[in-house]
């Protein structure tokens, strides 16, 4: 089925490319468990495009953090982009905030059956040398250090995928493949990790975050991978004028940075999980944003990135607000 989808994607991109400035998608990398983003202008490269559970990166951020500084001419052709369900929500949020205009993007929607978390694979097969990884039905088949492992896909999906309510793109110009079934339809399932933590005593929660955030090395991968972190080079975590944070790597600095990140995403975070996926120290930083997302849903009935015409609650003001 994946192969059919891939062929369909190639065909669609081939047809569209003459009308596009470029196509952003995924291609295989040196790591069988992870793809790498690819930017295609040359039709010869279309065959390199891939899709499937290894395509974990959210490509929407590249639209606001382009490879090179270039001024976009008014009559510029649209940019083609592959998006999964969660990625499409980031795109919607960026459209809402007018960082990109809808007619500047040609959206290739990819219904998603979940993406693979290489860390969970490592927990099962060890961090040994993975030579190849393929998907066969509901299994991940891995050849590592001369042994073939067959692992249930559900067991190695990213945490965010397990509570996913929107596996299908919210907006798209074309859909590639069959519509996927959501794994979750309730707040309880989507926010079960938040609830599990919330049910612990406050001392335990504090200890949890202290021990998790203590590993942070302030590399800012979480920030840079976040499609909605749009301050980019002006981030207050690094500016010296004004100086908000010191260069120290103590817990206070780490806490402050991560909570600034989370607060700036309140009502904007679409739960794509990129911040957590890219963390070299395996800190569950998306969990902080999930907590805020839950509050947003419960108090204001708002979930980010679902309606291109909607206004994120913290970007507006309602004098008759009754919920807060």
């Amino acid at each position: 089925m994946l192969e059919t989808d891939r062929i369909q994607l190639h065909k669609l991109v081939e047809e569209a490319l003459p009308e596009l400035d470029m196509m952003i998608g995924w291609t295989e990398s040196c790591d069988p468990l992870q793809t790498t983003p690819v930017f295609i202008r040359d039709a010869k490269l279309i065959s390199k495009l891939t899709l499937g559970p290894f395509c974990s990166q959210n490509l929407a951020g590249y639209l606001v953090k382009p490879p090179a500084l270039e001024s976009v001419p008014k009559d510029a052709k649209p940019i083609g982009i592959c998006v999964k369900g969660c990625d499409s929500r980031s795109l919607v949020a960026l459209i809402q905030e007018k960082f990109i205009s809808r007619d500047r993007v040609r959206i290739f929607g990819i219904p998603c059956r979940g993406t693979i978390d290489w860390r969970k694979v490592a927990q099962r097969v060890g961090l040994s040398d993975v030579k190849s990884a393929t998907v066969e039905d509901d299994f991940l088949v891995i050849d590592a250090s001369g042994t073939t492992h067959r692992i249930g896909l559900e067991d190695v999906l990213a945490r965010k995928c397990l509570g996913c309510r929107y596996p299908n793109p919210i907006i798209q110009d074309v859909l590639v493949g069959q519509v996927a079934t959501p794994r979750s339809s309730s707040l309880e399932t989507t926010y079960r990790d938040v609830d599990a933590l919330d049910n612990k005593p406050i001392e335990e929660r504090l200890a949890f975050w202290q021990s998790e955030l203590d590993r942070c090395i302030r590399c800012y991968a979480c920030r840079n991978a976040c499609p909605l972190c749009v301050c980019q080079d002006k981030c207050i975590a690094e500016t010296r004028e004004p100086r908000w944070l010191t260069q120290r790597v103590g817990l206070p600095e780490k806490f402050l940075f991560h909570f600034i990140h989370a607060m700036h995403l309140a009502g904007r975070c679409t739960g794509c999980g990129e911040c957590e996926r890219v963390c070299p120290m395996d800190i569950p930083v998306t969990l902080i944003k999930e907590k805020l997302n839950k509050i947003m849903e419960e108090m204001l009935g708002y979930s980010a990135g679902l309606d291109p015409d909607g206004v994120p609650p913290l970007l507006t003001f309602n004098p008759g607000e009754t919920e807060i």
Partner: peptide, 15 residues
């Protein structure tokens, strides 16, 4: 452009 367009400009590699 061809080699590193996908770079996020984070500090992981250097750290």
């Amino acid at each position: 452009v061809q080699m590193v367009s996908q770079c996020l400009s984070c500090g992981v590699c250097t750290y």
